[in-house]
Write a protein that binds this DNA or RNA. Structure first.
Lengths: 206, 206
DNA sequence: CAAAATATTAAACGTTGTTTATTAAAAGAA
DNA sequence: TTCTTTTAATAAACAACGTTTAATATTTTG
């Protein structure tokens, strides 16, 4: 195994390239439109070659999902490092969440809307915990809010889930344009309606 | 055109049958798994025959979506007819919404999660307003709540959207099992967590 | 450098949704 | 009713998909 390092690097490199190309196509066109044949064409290889690096299409998107969650986690880095606590932290996190969702709609869908790669997550990796790391951040903020008495919630668990549901609902409905479907005439002001609605939620539970 | 009535009835009947079979298959297996070939096999006709009654698969699911919205609207019939107003009405509506979502997950997805038939809705039927009829019911309840001062919201428009986002988030996250992904260990109690969380929201904004 | 292991490829398989040309059936006019 | 015309159902094929297989090219190893 003289060149097994080199070989290993080549394999890593190919896997990375597949992921990069897949990610770009996916963010442009979504899951269904991102076909293995397109990926292969961009890379310049045969579709079958991809199967030497990933077991199937789902495995690629499972990997992409993991990347997306990491990307998502890193988006909260400045909040995690800053001194801000409690209510203001919760507000910042909410805005950041909405930002991420609206600016990376396909990544958001991959994480929280689509089901296929999710099953892979459950099946392949019982130690998967990047999602939980993100959720813990929210629970932490909610806990601080309850300690400082800045919001009225029953308990941390339920409060965190409530707020998550709320921002997820905001983002999901906006991404898929379902709000435009339900409220046709009241549309001019919804440009940043998601932010406004989140702020109103905070006011209401204060 | 002697028998054109009869013919017309046969066409209506066939369209109805296609819709019924599609609906059943869809509610059992979802969008992707409900293929035109399966539908045709159940009906006992050639797949191509279906194209004499619907332009394409999307058109079938657009029709199903309209049915789903009607079904959804009718689920609120008793609330609409009852005397209950304001806060209690909002609570009942929330529970009904969650009920519907959890008991008919595929229909719920068709209405509020999947995108394909949505585009058809926009494109084909600018007079489509069944969605708005449902939303108006919510706005009405929110308005009553604000009049009686039972909940603290900025305005009707924003308040209604907030509550919709909240219950949609609850249902959508549960349907796709994303909550189980984010909070692994806190799962025993979530059997009817959606209801509990909704009740907590109401308490918090009271 | 030859042999063994591995990666890439072209071709094919079994699916999809959809279209086309042909056959069967129903409708209108005599 | 009978003949013609319009309409519907069919089998077959198309393009595209994810995936598998068997053969070719490329490395790695002894």
């Amino acid at each position: 195994m003289r060149n097994s390092n080199k070989r290993q690097l080549a394999i890593e490199s190919m896997r990375k390239q597949i992921l990069e190309v897949s990610s770009q196509l996916f963010q442009e066109e979504g899951y269904e439109q991102t076909t293995l044949r397109k990926i292969a064409k961009v890379i310049g290889c045969n579709p079958a070659t991809i199967y030497n690096y990933y077991n199937n299409k789902e495995a690629i998107f499972f990997a992409l999902q993991e990347e997306a969650f990491t990307h998502f986690y890193e988006a909260f880095e400045d909040i995690r490092l800053s001194e801000v606590k409690g209510f203001q932290k919760l507000r910042k996190m909410g805005r950041k969440y909405i930002d991420f969702g609206l600016n990376h709609p396909h990544l958001y869908e991959l994480m929280f809307v689509l089901k296929p790669p999710m099953k892979a997550a459950e099946a392949l990796d019982p130690e998967w915990n990047i999602g939980q790391k993100n959720y813990d951040l929210l629970k932490e903020a909610v806990e601080e809010c309850m300690e400082e008495g800045s919001i009225r919630l029953e308990d941390v668990e339920s409060g965190a889930f409530m707020i998550w549901s709320m921002v997820h609902g905001l983002v999901a409905l906006r991404i898929n344009k379902h709000c435009e479907m339900m409220m046709k005439e009241d549309l001019p002001f919804i440009a940043n309606q998601a932010y406004i609605t989140f702020e109103n939620l905070l006011k209401s539970i204060k």
